[in-house]
Write a protein that binds this DNA or RNA. Structure first.
Lengths: 244, 244
DNA sequence: GTCTATAACACGATAGAC
DNA sequence: GTCTATCGTGTTATAGAC
């Protein structure tokens, strides 16, 4: 029953566990293509043949890595949504709650190198940069349920937007989050450098704070059907507030 | 004088030109690591040894590709900023103008496969997903000047934000743009699929429109020092407007 | 400038002993 | 379950003829 266990990894003994842990780091660090099974097995301290025995192939190992990393984050997101919805008792959630459930689990995890949250973000970006057909199923399976829940919640809390507009803005929000999180990586840190050190991309609370403030305002902005007259009024009002 | 020409490519004859054009496509399609010089030279219809003769190495070829793709986009961005600032005659630019200069060149170019704009976005995301030290210099050289101009303009137009907050929001805006643009790639298209076809990620005018509306609202949102009382008022006002 | 031929090495996967 | 040894194939880079 090897295939049944292929996505887990807690099961299957020490060798399999060490292999998965090493694969997380090497895939995240080198990318799927550049990562070699020799480097992974060497880092895990196991024989090179163990990958094929325990996982079947390099692709299957990659899928197991992704599954392992994404599952706890998305489970936590859904759990937070459940809690907030129970508190709300039928009323729409606040935007802050929805975005907190979406962002906080992955932002905080991403700053803890030990637990592999750092690796998850790198792998998500890698899959977006070089879409690989064999990853599509894992990606959908892991992220689609959360996306649906979030978008539905956003629609309830943003009645001035069409469902299409909510989808666009959900995607913008996700992009902003992934971008800023991935920027803290060793070898990149463009925001930290560009800002002359002003922006500390290692502080997850600060990132979440700035991110939610920006996205909440962006979500609340007028939709396409709001007239330009109204948008103009809001703009003037905002400028007046800012200056005074 | 090979090195002097290494970043250009218009110069240097037909073989070099064809090589660079093929390299743009193959690097974008396969990623730097997975792309092989055999595939590039084969697509260009030139001999495999030509890469080393004309560019010196695979890394140098990649740098030349990036240089060639990024330069026209950033030159156009700076040209737009110049025009808008001349029109404004010393007054701060509108947010719409600043973001138009930042987004429009790359969003529109990215939907034209022929001219390689599609390739530029993929390569930017690839470099972010797998930072490679030999790319840092090209990246800074190409993008830092634009980033500085944009952030300075934003600071003038957003007096209610600190410079640090402007940097954060600039990064969020960039991430939202790159994410949504990269999503239209063959093999990904998650937004299109998740939204049940509602969001057409192939329409650059629509993308720019939605993007600028979202980002403008996000930028105008209250900063960290704005009291929660004030933020609460704005939120209530927004909700009231939305419901009525 | 462009070619062929090849050096020197790394890869994923597997067969088969233990 | 874990090992060694190896197959077949791929890579970048270069040497040297034309």
């Amino acid at each position: 029953m090897r295939l049944k266990q292929a996505f887990d990894g807690e099961e299957g003994g020490e060798t399999k566990r060490r292999l998965l842990a090493a694969a997380i780091n090497v895939f995240a660090e080198q990318g799927y293509n550049a990562a070699t099974l020799r480097e992974i097995t060497s880092a895990a301290g196991v024989n090179i043949a163990a990958v094929n025995y325990h996982f079947g192939s390099k692709q299957a190992l990659m899928r197991a890595v992704f599954h392992r990393l994404a599952r706890p984050v998305n489970e936590l997101r859904l759990k937070l949504l459940d809690e907030y919805e129970e508190q709300a008792g039928g009323r729409p959630l606040s935007l802050e709650q929805i975005l907190d459930a979406l962002f906080r689990p992955i932002v905080f995890l991403s700053r803890e190198r030990k637990t592999g949250g750092f690796a998850l973000v790198r792998l998500i970006i890698q899959v977006r940069a070089l879409p690989q057909p064999f990853m599509n199923s894992v990606l959908s399976e892991q992220f689609d349920p959360v996306a649906s829940r979030i978008v539905d919640a956003l629609c309830r809390s943003l009645p001035h937007l069409t469902r299409e507009e909510v989808f666009w803005r959900y995607d913008f929000a996700l992009g902003a989050m992934l971008h800023v999180i991935s920027d803290a990586d060793r070898g990149l840190r463009r925001l930290h450098r560009l800002s002359g050190g002003l922006c500390d991309t290692d502080d997850p609370a600060r990132i979440t704070d700035e991110l939610i403030r920006f996205v909440v305002a962006g979500m609340r902005g007028p939709g396409q059907d709001q007239t330009s007259r109204k948008a103009g009024e809001e703009r003037d009002a905002a400028n007046t507030r800012a200056v005074t």
